[in-house]
Nucleic acid binder design. Structure first.
Ligand SMILES: [Zn+2]
Ligand SMILES: [Zn+2]
Ligand SMILES: [Zn+2]
Ligand SMILES: [Zn+2]
Lengths: 149, 149
DNA sequence: ATGATAATGACAATCCTTTGCAAGTGATTT
DNA sequence: AAATCACTTGCAAAGGATTGTCATTATCAT
């Protein structure tokens, strides 16, 4: 569908869905384009966009994150720290990547693997369950925090 | 360590950890023994135990669930519905089972597989990440809700 | 430019969960 | 059995992330 996700192409996507292109939404979108590798919470996004646009409200950040996730620009994650975290959805991955979450410093790294594909086939047959999505997380300690564990 | 988890053996486990064996804790524990296959929220546990002991407080339920999870009697899960869900930890599974969550009716079924073991070995080498735990969930539609999806 | 309509920001409200606190209770020692 | 002492309880209040309300403002097709 979408080949490359540029700022322009995403703006068009919003317009096509009859979402209005407000400065707040543009600012938030830019923030993610400038931090494609991060997994940001609403509060963190709020802090980042305030530099560009101090007038923006936290509720607007929440609403915009919802929309961007709904149209597939962002991915919404739950890493168990009590808040949702959003990341820019780079490629057209129909089954998205997995996460390694450090119990020491909270850092999140990523991991790609197609192993679950075959597992899903087994599950469909064995459990008569139509899989729409999966969520795989590994909790542990990164190389920096690893000493002592 | 513990071979079979009976009511008695768990009571002893509590005592050994210098937790007092109060009627509230016994009631909550019994509730899980009577619903070994379920994934109960604090509120659901609260409702269930009120039949046995109407005096019990919700905060006590939360505190007891914390303790029982801490000593390994219960497993705490997050299925993305905004509340924690606890299940009785039946066997001594050092790596616990996975979950199939129906997006239609919310029903949770279970799935056992050792495929992640080999995946973990890859991750440890490739990412220098010491894995302590993993969490795998499949979201989809069960056989009853499957029609129309 | 104008008007229909959607979006914003400030604030209150919601939901699940945790905490402070005074009173109560269990286990242990006299 | 009574005293002791730390652990527990129930209640109410607080906490934190998220959503709802609503008057005001901005977008965009016309
Ligand atoms: Zn770390
Ligand atoms: Zn990611
Ligand atoms: Zn179902
Ligand atoms: Zn389970």
């Amino acid at each position: 569908m979408e080949e490359v996700k540029t700022f322009e192409s995403i703006c068009n996507l919003l317009r096509n869905r009859s979402y209005k292109l407000t400065p707040q939404r543009q600012t938030i979108l830019q923030t993610f384009l400038e931090h494609v590798d991060r997994h940001l919470s609403a509060e963190e996004v709020y802090m980042l966009v305030k530099h560009q646009n101090p007038e923006i409200g936290l509720a607007t950040v929440y609403r915009t994150l919802d929309i961007l996730a709904e149209i597939g620009i962002l991915l919404k994650n739950d890493f168990g720290d009590g808040r949702s975290r959003y990341e820019f959805s780079r490629k057209d991955e129909q089954h998205h990547h997995h996460h390694l979450i450090c119990l020491g410093c909270g850092n999140v790294s990523e991991f790609d693997d197609d192993l679950l594909e075959s597992l899903e086939a087994v599950i469909i047959k064995r459990n008569q369950f139509k899989i729409m999505d999966h969520d795989l997380k590994f909790y542990g300690y990164c190389s920096q925090c690893g000493e002592g564990h």
